[in-house]
Design a protein around this nucleic acid. Structure first.
Lengths: 244, 244
DNA sequence: AATTGCCAAAATGAATTCATAAATGATCCG
DNA sequence: CGGATCATTTATGAATTCATTTTGGCAATT
């Protein structure tokens, strides 16, 4: 019955929190108060804390020693590096996919491509983005490498946080669509080397566009941690020898 | 930098457990009884469970619903995929490094290279492996990309588990050394494209060697170490004073 | 005698509780 | 009136405790 099966509480929390971060509901730099989220999700702190540790290891949140967790803030360099790595991973995926992909899978990607081309023609950016993402995911899946797929999803999730506000200029959009034509072409020809090269360039161009568009999503929800020169309060130790 | 010297119990446990798994002290497929490790590390279950969750997200352990955690078992396909991805990551690292590396860093890698060549000449495999690893790590570091470095370490740690028993035939060893000559050469010339290509091929060859050598460490002594001494969990009352 | 159902013991998942370090505000002194 | 020190409060880190599921053993039945 229950589709989520036994639904380990903390695994579910990891998924939900990750979605919230990736979708921008928890903006970069936002503090993550444990207690508040505990009430929100109606769970105790234990599974939530476990989830935060996992998200920290995935790079989505940063944890300061005894000062709680915050959503990791993406710098321009972070975004550039993430796109670089993603480009390398997708290039590998393309090469592997060309060697292993079936005609059926190619047909599926082709269908996605044409649907995306339609939305490009209609200038429907959100729909275009959705299809674009599905195409890239299908390519990685077609590589047949679970390891690659896992790492790609990891990197992709971290990138996605920086992308929603990136308005795409029409000329760049057309260029991207053109690059996708090349991607599909190379895939159909099963030309792995070319496909890999195009994908790498494609990601590099996208990186440039996103960075130039100013990816920053710094609407400080609770993120305003402007560091005023806060003096160090003298640390008073607890008088242990008090008679009680 | 890499090692936050914080005294967070849970982070320390992650590091120790990861080392135990990577070094083979906890063999693939081995069960990880929480209680036993709690005694061993003299901590309670809470930080240990958090550590296990993190290691699971890193791919080092697999967790079944209510049946505990086990060290992830590496299949041949896993190893091949890991090497493929590592090849792509190192190729990217090589390209980036050639564009950014300083003469000083090159000199350091050169020194490592010649020291490794010495051990190759002496047929000292463990020492060779150590230097080899340090060279690859230095290359990735020289890329200047923290994201890349993080992912490389992740993948590299997962690979390392499969490699200790991989005896290297002399001809393959000589070939590897020769490839490293090419690596150093391309690096000195700052020829990123060539360096990337060599690295990718280098990793591919290493993958083939490891797989052919039969990396499998399939002695599942998961249940073999179950003596029935009925020990109590370490009921630590108050860590008010310094222990041990 | 073998198999199946039931009960107990153990281990895991989650919640609650305890202790400590950090942040905030109030008070006292310059 | 301003600033530093101390006390209070709050939140995080860790341990303990409780509940649920799984597993192993024993007995009864066929």
């Amino acid at each position: 019955m229950g589709t989520p099966g036994n639904a380990l509480l903390h695994d579910e929390l990891v998924a939900r929190l990750r979605a919230m971060i990736v979708d921008g509901e928890l903006p970069p730099g936002a503090r993550i108060p444990e207690r508040e989220l505990c009430e929100r999700f109606e769970v105790s702190r234990t599974p939530l804390r476990e989830a935060l540790k996992v998200l920290a290891s995935e790079g989505h949140v940063s944890r300061l020693p005894n000062k709680g967790a915050r959503v990791t803030r993406l710098t321009t360099q972070d975004v550039e590096e993430l796109f670089e790595v993603s480009g390398a991973l997708e290039a590998l995926a393309g090469e592997l996919a060309c060697a292993r992909i079936s005609d059926t899978e190619i047909a599926e990607i082709k269908a996605l491509h044409y649907e995306m081309a339609l939305y490009h023609h209609k200038r429907d950016l959100p729909a275009y983005y959705t299809l674009n993402r599905r195409i890239h995911e299908a390519l990685v899946r077609a590589s047949g490498s679970k390891v690659l797929q896992g790492l790609y999803e990891q990197v992709s999730a971290r990138i996605r946080r920086a992308r929603f506000v990136a308005a795409m200029p029409f000329d760049r959009w057309d260029q991207a669509m053109s690059e996708h034509e090349g991607i599909l072409n190379a895939l159909v020809r099963r030309d792995g080397a070319t496909l890999g090269a195009i994908l790498k360039q494609h990601l590099q161009n996208k990186s440039k566009q996103v960075v130039e568009a100013g990816f920053a999503v710094d609407h400080d929800d609770g993120a305003a941690d402007a560091p005023p020169p806060r003096r160090r309060p003298p640390r008073r130790k607890r008088p242990a020898g008090e008679g009680t």
